[in-house]
């Protein structure tokens, strides 16, 4: 495993931990989109169908379990935990996430590398992950106050995607037959979605002012 890939996984892990810290410790999910969290739970559930059938490494299995467990517990917290539930900004989190799921499913049925159930589900998860952040970005734009933990959560998620791109470039030049257009294009689309947020996040950090996004 190369350094970009490891750093990507670690920033992904940090983003999840930041979110869990906010929810579990402060008992608040203010500014967090339940729609995005539900989409991520669906992404991991459909991508890791191989978790008990194909063993890759202990690292791989443990990380899969962490991402599955954390995404479903975040959804549980936001839907079922009394205190956390109360801080959920339901009125602003109105993105119709079904509008993302269906096109991704159709696209996965049309464009995939192998027409098997597992492979189509895996491809669907790749497409869905690319756009799953959209409800969260829309919610951020509608919320005038973005607290530090929410900003850091989105920042680390974006960092994870950027590092994965460096990982693909590295693997392309170091491994034979490493060509994965579906993953690359989806990953690139996903990273570009963060570009705007990154711009405002970094400039607020540089100028030492609170993060706000333009309407």
């Amino acid at each position: 495993m190369n350094a970009f890939r490891l750093a990507g996984d670690m920033t992904h892990l940090i983003s999840v931990l930041v979110l869990l810290l906010k929810i579990h410790t402060i008992k608040s999910c203010a500014g967090i989109s339940l729609k995005t969290q539900e989409l991520y739970a669906l992404v991991f559930a459909t991508r890791y169908l191989d978790i008990f059938t194909d063993f890759i490494s202990l690292y791989n299995t443990v990380m899969k379990l962490i991402f599955l467990g954390s995404s479903f517990s975040i959804v549980w917290y936001m839907r079922r935990h009394k205190l956390v539930q109360r801080s959920y900004d339901k009125d602003h989190d109105t993105f119709r996430h079904q509008l993302l799921v269906l096109p991704c499913l159709i696209l996965a049925l049309l464009i995939h590398e192998q027409f098997t159930f597992k492979e189509v589900m895996w491809t669907f998860s790749i497409y869905l992950e690319a756009v799953a952040i959209l409800p969260q970005l829309v919610l951020l734009q509608r919320t005038r106050n973005i607290d530090n933990l929410t900003g850091q959560y989105v920042f680390f998620l974006g960092a994870y995607r950027s590092l994965y791109i460096l990982n693909w470039i590295y693997r392309y030049f170091t491994e034979p037959h490493y060509v994965h257009w579906i993953t690359w294009i989806s990953g690139l689309v996903q990273t570009l979605l963060y570009a705007d947020f990154f711009y405002y996040y970094i400039s607020s950090w540089k100028n030492n002012v609170k993060l706000t996004l333009p309407a």
Binding site: D9, N60, N167, H180
Partner: peptide, 10 residues
């Protein structure tokens, strides 16, 4: 073979 390599990613 090529398909499998990307499956070690998360």
């Amino acid at each position: 073979l090529a398909l499998e390599s990307v499956k070690d990613e998360l």
